[in-house]
């Protein structure tokens, strides 16, 4: 994977040379705060844990992660820099993985900046920090899965707006596949087994366990596979669409 590191560094610093990083991080922290303290009633619950904080992450990511991923490839294709990037002596996979990892690291930085809440929780009580760590890891994994999907969609269009909207829609589908209403709706159309399989793709269901601190290997494997499959698909789509 020669060239992965420079691509990663360029992409990551790209977030910080533009207002993208600032706007994203401020909005992310603000919304995370609103969800935790207002909607989640963090103080009123009187429990020293971060369950309410993690509970809202899927909804936060639903709109914020596609905003990060939309530019990954759409911008390169629109400005023609994709031709520059892909005629440098690096493999396609180094470019695809490098860019994905940069976006993921960026999401990780935003997530890490929520540490004051962790400090607060530890100040107010004595939470199980293992559970909190599991929550952070799970949240990071889910962010990666959303990013991988967004990266693939971004590769398929030159328009960042289209990339954003389609990514949100697909992420909604992945999130909600498991909830009862959607399952009931699908049951009218599909055989029971298919409904169950689709339900298994639900981010929401899988993340629920993680946010309670249950880091099941199957859930980790699920998110890792989503990342793997969609990053690989990104490579295929970039290769297919680069000429157009």
């Amino acid at each position: 994977m020669k060239g992965l590191l420079p691509v990663f560094k360029r992409e990551l610093s790209g977030y910080f040379t533009t207002p993208v990083a600032l706007v994203f991080i401020v909005i992310f922290l603000f919304l995370a705060g609103v969800f935790t303290f207002n909607l989640g009633a963090y103080f009123e619950r009187g429990q020293a844990d971060m369950v309410v904080f993690f509970n809202f992450h899927p909804w936060l990511y639903l709109f914020l992660i596609p905003a990060v991923s939309m530019r990954l490839w759409a911008e390169e294709r629109k400005s023609g820099t994709i031709e520059l990037l892909l005629t440098l002596p690096i493999s396609l996979s180094a470019a695809v993985v490098g860019k994905f990892l940069a976006a993921w690291a960026f999401a990780g930085i935003a997530l890490a900046l929520t540490f004051p809440l962790w400090i607060t929780t530890n100040y107010l009580g004595s939470p199980d920090n293992g559970v909190i760590l599991a929550g952070y890891l799970g949240s990071l994994l889910m962010a990666g899965a959303f990013l991988a999907i967004g990266s693939c969609i971004s590769a398929s269009t030159k328009s960042q707006v289209i990339a954003f909207i389609i990514s949100v829609v697909i992420c909604v589908l992945f999130m909600l596949a498991g909830i009862r209403e959607v399952q009931g709706f699908l049951a009218d159309w599909l055989p029971v087994q298919a409904v169950q399989v689709l339900g298994g793709f639900s981010f929401l269901t899988r993340f629920e366990a993680i946010s309670r601190g249950v880091l099941d290997a199957r859930d980790v494997l699920f998110f890792a596979s989503i990342i793997g499959v969609f990053v690989a698909a990104t490579g295929v789509v970039v290769n297919m669409k680069k000429a157009v």
């Binding site: 590191l5 360029r10 790209g14 400005s79």
Partner: peptide
């Protein structure tokens, strides 16, 4: 190969220095 694609695309947000630095790093 050294290649200048049509329209000389480059990353507008980067400074000249950091852009050349990036290309140099990619080229090893």
């Amino acid at each position: 190969i050294g290649y200048l694609p049509e329209g000389a695309p480059n990353y507008p947000d980067m400074t000249v220095r950091s852009f050349l630095d990036f290309v140099a790093q990619v080229r090893g």
